[in-house]
Amino acid sequence: MGIPAMMYLWPAARGGSTNVEVEGAIDLKPGRSKTLQVGSKAVIVVRERSGFLAFSAVCTHLGCLVKWDADSKKFLCPCHAAVFDGNGKVVSGPPPAPLEAYVVKEIGDKVYVAPPA
C-alpha cells in the first residue's frame, strides 16, 4: 500500500513546450527585457545591441524572479538584493550559483528560447 501511495503522490511530469517563441521579441528595444514561461519555469529574455540573451529568471538563492536593470546591465533580485551580471554570474548577494543560461534561436523575425541541452 505504502509504495503505490508514494508513487501516486510523486508529482507526475506535466510536460509542456520547452521551445517557446518570445512573443513580440522583434519589437523589444535594445536594453529592454521580457519575462515569459518556458515549460514550468520563468525565463528572462534581454535584447542587447548584439542580439538576444536568455536566462532562467529564477534567482538561485530562494527562487524569486530577477529583473533586468538596463542602466547597470545587471539582473537584480527583489527579495534578498542579489545582483547578477549580464552573463548571469553572481556579482553580490547570497546566491550560491549563476543564473541558468537558455538557448536563443533567431529564425527570420522570430525568436525562440529553449532550456540548455
Binding site: T35, L36, Q37, A42, A57, C64, L65, C77, P78, C79
Partner: peptide, 9 residues
C-alpha cells in the same frame, strides 16, 4: 502573478 516577484516580500 508567477512572472513578477513583488519587492520586499
Amino acid at each position: 502573478n508567477p512572472l513578477m516577484t513583488p519587492p520586499h516580500i
